[in-house]
């Protein structure tokens, strides 16, 4: 078993596996085709309705650029915050036990089922000018969060965080504790082990979770417009722009959706490309 022979052989085997999957039973292939068509057809239908002639004009409108920029920045910040706080939360959920932890686990999934508008109202109740935390923030430091880009990030983080936490928690649970034991016998502290051994092993799950969180944040509408309001250039993200455009000019709304969609797909493809090269290294 020599190494040069095994490494190049691997992609070939995988491709073989995929080919085998493609020849799978029709009981799987048929529903798979229906699922794919169900997802793709509305997107194609949207493409058909795009007013291609006005598209270049729309793209150059400063308000579209601003909304797009704000969307990307805020969604990325929300994904970053989700990682920063979501990974530790996932760790706690995966390693602790007891009724309190079970309750916490249930609560983490609440933003997934809560209508986002209600989430926005909840955020106002907590961080609003007269909110539980918002009032002391305002009284003591003169900080008000609603109607700021920070509020956009918070609203997006609120709905995106569960995606990351649930993905990473699952990975923590299936992680082989043997590696952490090996690290301990080599003299590593628990924190050093977490950073250098555990986290790299979790990288695929963290990546998947943060891509999910990012995408959810990018499409966030209800919580954002409720908690952060709609102020062009400040809190108006693409979904808000799309919604308001729908009121006046449905064609423009479709065009804006298309832009958001293309940017999203582009970023994911780039990310995938980077990850591919990173993995091949």
């Amino acid at each position: 078993m020599t190494i040069p022979a095994t490494s190049p052989a691997r992609p070939g085997t995988i491709r073989g596996d995929e080919a085998a999957l493609g020849r799978g039973p029709w009981q799987l292939r048929l529903p798979a085709a229906i699922a794919a068509a169900f997802l793709v057809l509305p997107l194609l239908a949207l493409l058909v309705r795009v007013p291609w002639s006005t598209l270049p004009h729309l793209l150059t409108e400063p308000i579209v650029g601003e909304a797009l920029r704000l969307s990307l920045i805020c969604a990325s910040a929300a994904a970053g915050l989700s990682m920063l706080f979501g990974i530790p939360l996932a760790w706690v959920l995966a390693h602790a036990s007891g009724p309190l932890v079970n309750l916490l686990r249930a609560l983490v999934t609440v933003p997934l089922v809560l209508p986002p508008v209600v989430g926005g109202v909840a955020l106002l109740a907590a961080f609003g000018r007269r909110g539980v935390l918002g009032r002391p923030l305002d009284d003591l430091f003169g900080i008000t969060l609603p109607f700021t880009p920070i509020a956009v990030v918070l609203a997006e983080t609120f709905v995106a965080l569960p995606f990351l936490v649930l993905t990473v928690e699952g990975a923590f649970r299936t992680l082989d504790s043997g590696y952490a034991e090996a690290a301990a016998t080599l003299g590593a502290s628990r924190w050093f082990t977490f950073r250098t051994v555990v986290l790299p092993l979790l990288a695929p799950a963290v990546l998947a979770g943060s891509v999910l969180a990012w995408a959810r944040a990018l499409g966030e509408f209800g919580a954002t417009i409720t908690f952060a309001g709609n102020s062009p250039g400040r809190t108006q993200t693409m979904p808000l722009a799309v919604y308001l455009a729908m009121e006046r000019d449905p064609d423009a709304a479709i065009a804006l959706s298309l832009i958001l969609l293309l940017v999203c797909v582009l970023v994911l493809l780039l990310l995938r490309g980077r990850w591919l090269t990173g993995a091949a290294r």
């Binding site: 997107l43 998947a208 995408a215 990018l218 499409g219 799309v242 959706s257 969609l261 995938r272």
Partner: peptide, 25 residues
């Protein structure tokens, strides 16, 4: 080799989430 597949999968979910945005709106 399974990382890219994961990402591709998440990409689809991301599209879903996007669609979810218009649903939300």
């Amino acid at each position: 080799t399974r990382y890219p597949r994961l990402v591709a999968g998440s990409g689809l979910v991301a599209l879903l989430a996007l669609a979810g945005c218009s649903g939300g709106s």
